[in-house]
Design a protein around this nucleic acid. Structure first.
Length: 606
DNA sequence: TCTAGTGTCGCCCTCTGCTGGGGTTTT
DNA sequence: AAAAACCCCAGCAGAGGGCGACACTAGA
């Protein structure tokens, strides 16, 4: 048969438009295998552009396979008409026509003039072809053309199943596509009979719904045999032709139902209606337990699971997590696997979901979309802003009391830091700097060490003297035992403290030593100690004097006598530091008691 | 053809927790 | 005065809840 010739401009591309030649008699086969007659369309029955291709056009959804007469089933010529290349029609839609891109043509798409004979081995299945004719199959897989072809294949199958030849059972098609003989702008598909494999309730996953193309086996169809329709593009199978047809529509890009408000197109009226409802705000599905309403029943069901029934069908096998939605479980699983599919292009960060990546990208862009309505400070995350407002601009700011101490902290996270720093058990012992106590918790250590503050833990066993440091007590004890471990190398004197020895040495054996003299402002009497001078001055009636700057002090060569009060001061060495700090006065060195620790009194007159 | 049910993707939100800089207080 | 300790604060990421929109299947 000759294809319909339609004159079109040569620059246009071709798209399958209609079945030109179909069997004379189409029979619809019921599920039970029964057939009913059906009038074939006329030769000029050209449908609107249909992604299924011409065969689909003649096998309406819900109807069964049109059988062919034996003669007609031998070879069927399909004519493809050229249609205008619409805006929403991609080049790739027809790229399947070319197994190999023709040189000088664009995008692997070629016009009918360039079309060569192409054998479409329907029986091989597109997937099986993939490895051998990858270019071709890839082109198909990525294009609606594949869908059309596959659909054509399916239709071929359907036609065969439907009884192209009722006497011979399933038949398969062998399809040839080539430029029309008479017209340069048409493709002729030559469809030869092929066999469809009979399947006796095979599982849906059963592959290979057709035999090889050269098969001529024709088996008798029986009512007990159930056929399964396999989608060559996906794993879909169905025992119902209507379901199969409906499914095949999902492999097309055709969306004939357009929203008049936003021009978005949809495949079905239902989808369009739902979409329009999003414009109009129509929400037919109302929740019986709250005021929420939804566009689709599915949204309502999901809402009820989230808010009311708390049904969580998707359970994690690795933990107790369960979710309402499968996608949530999938997302959760990533927390177990560590999978991070969403990689930041600017750094090494990768996220487990798209939102976190998007949120992360703000760290690169510097975007701070959240603004405090009070102080207009900006934040990268809403939660941060919320905390800010709560802490800065709200009354009755919640505080967090440490359960182990009296500390009150504004933020929970900071309380956690506090707990970690101060109240966490540490394996390594922390020693008290004042005693031998050890602790494993910093807070306890700090509290303990505070008890040592101003504490005179060292008590004399002979008197009431107590001091804070052991070394002071050692010195003090010598006042009771008489021990004097520091002998003077220049005379026979011994001293209990090294400092006393040093003072002695300077005073009596160092020619350069100039003792300090505190002079009573009333009587002029000199003292080596400020306190002694004050004591004297009180009796004398004069006010406090000042450290005498009398020029060079007298040097005495008197044999030093151990001052009586030296012993007393030894006993009074209740002060902490037994050191002597020397203060430099103009022209003289004045020993200044430091923290009550006394030095040997230097007297002027003895 | 309609509808219920289911699934997917995306978006936004909240809660949570850690981190490090900076200011204040304590030592 | 300096160092250490502590708290405040913003930045940032992990985990999960909830919903909008759309797609698809199956059954009526």
């Amino acid at each position: 048969m000759a294809g319909t010739e339609i004159s079109v401009p040569p620059e246009q591309f071709t798209r399958i438009k209609a079945l030109e030649v179909i069997p004379e008699v189409l029979l619809e086969e019921e599920e039970d295998g029964g057939c009913r007659g059906r009038e074939p369309p006329g030769p000029g029955d050209v449908q609107a552009p249909c992604p299924y291709g011409p065969l689909q056009a003649k096998v309406p959804e819900g109807e069964q396979e049109p059988p062919l007469t034996t003669e007609e089933s031998e070879k069927h010529i399909l004519t493809l008409q050229t249609v205008h290349f619409s805006e929403d029609m991609q080049l790739q839609d027809i790229s399947w026509l070319s197994p190999q891109p023709q040189e000088g043509l664009q995008e692997g798409v070629y016009s009918l003039q360039e079309t060569e004979v192409m054998e479409l081995h329907v029986l091989e299945g597109s997937m099986a072809m993939a490895s051998e004719e990858s270019k071709f199959v890839v082109s198909l897989a990525e294009s609606a053309g594949l869908l059309k072809l596959a659909k054509d294949q399916e239709e071929g199958q359907l036609l065969a199943e439907g009884g192209l030849d009722p006497q011979v059972g399933e038949q398969l098609f062998f399809v040839e596509a080539k430029p029309g003989d008479e017209g340069r702008d048409e493709i002729v598909l030559t469809v030869s009979d092929l066999n469809v494999e009979e399947q006796e309730d095979k599982p849906a996953s059963s592959q290979g719904h057709v035999e090889k193309a050269t098969s001529t086996k024709k088996t008798k169809k029986t009512k007990e045999i159930k056929r399964t329709f396999h989608c060559d593009i996906c794993v879909f199978t169905s025992s119902r032709i209507s379901s199969f047809n409906r499914h095949m529509k999902t492999h097309t890009a055709e969306k004939p139902h357009m929203c008049h408000l936003c021009l978005k197109a949809f495949r079905t009226v239902t989808l369009l209606r739902n979409h329009v409802n999003t414009h109009t705000g129509t929400r037919p599905y109302k929740c019986g337990d709250c005021d929420m309403a939804f566009v689709t029943s599915g949204e309502l069901v999901r809402h009820r699971r989230y808010k009311h029934t708390h049904e969580k069908p998707f359970k994690c096998s690795m933990c107790k997590y369960a979710s309402v939605e499968a996608s949530k479980l999938k997302r959760h699983i990533r927390s177990h696997t560590g999978e991070r599919p969403f990689q930041c292009l600017l750094c090494s960060y990768a996220s487990k979901d798209t939102y976190k990546l998007k949120r992360h990208m703000r760290t690169h862009s510097g975007e701070k979309p959240y603004e405090c309505h009070v102080c207009h400070a900006r934040f990268t995350q809403s939660g941060t802003m919320k905390i800010h407002i709560l802490q800065k601009h709200s009354e009755n700011v919640p505080k967090y009391q440490c359960p182990h101490c009296a500390t009150i902290i504004a933020r929970k996270s900071d309380l956690r830091v506090h707990l970690r720093n101060l109240h966490t058990y540490k394996a390594t012992e922390m020693k008290c700097r004042c005693c031998s106590a050890v602790f494993h918790e910093r807070y306890a250590l700090i509290q303990h060490q505070k008890t040592h503050k101003n504490e005179k833990r060292f008590k004399c066993e002979y008197c009431s003297y107590a001091c804070m440091q052991e070394r002071h007590m050692t010195v003090h004890i010598r006042t009771h035992t008489g021990e004097k471990p520091f002998p003077c190398l220049s005379c026979d004197k011994c001293f209990r403290q090294e400092q006393l020895l040093n003072v002695h040495f300077k005073k009596y054996h160092d020619a350069n030593f100039i003792p300090a003299v505190y002079e009573c402002p009333k009587c002029g009497k000199g003292f080596s100690r400020w306190s002694n001078m004050q004591r004297h001055s009180a009796k004398c009636g004069s006010g406090p004097g000042k450290p005498a700057a009398l020029g060079k002090a007298r040097r005495t060569k008197r044999k030093p006598a151990v001052p009586k009060e030296a012993v007393q001061e030894d006993e009074a060495a209740a002060k902490e530091v037994p050191a002597v700090r020397l203060e430099q006065c103009p022209g003289e060195v004045v020993p200044v008691p430091y923290e009550g620790v006394v030095a040997e009194e230097v007297t002027c007159d003895g």
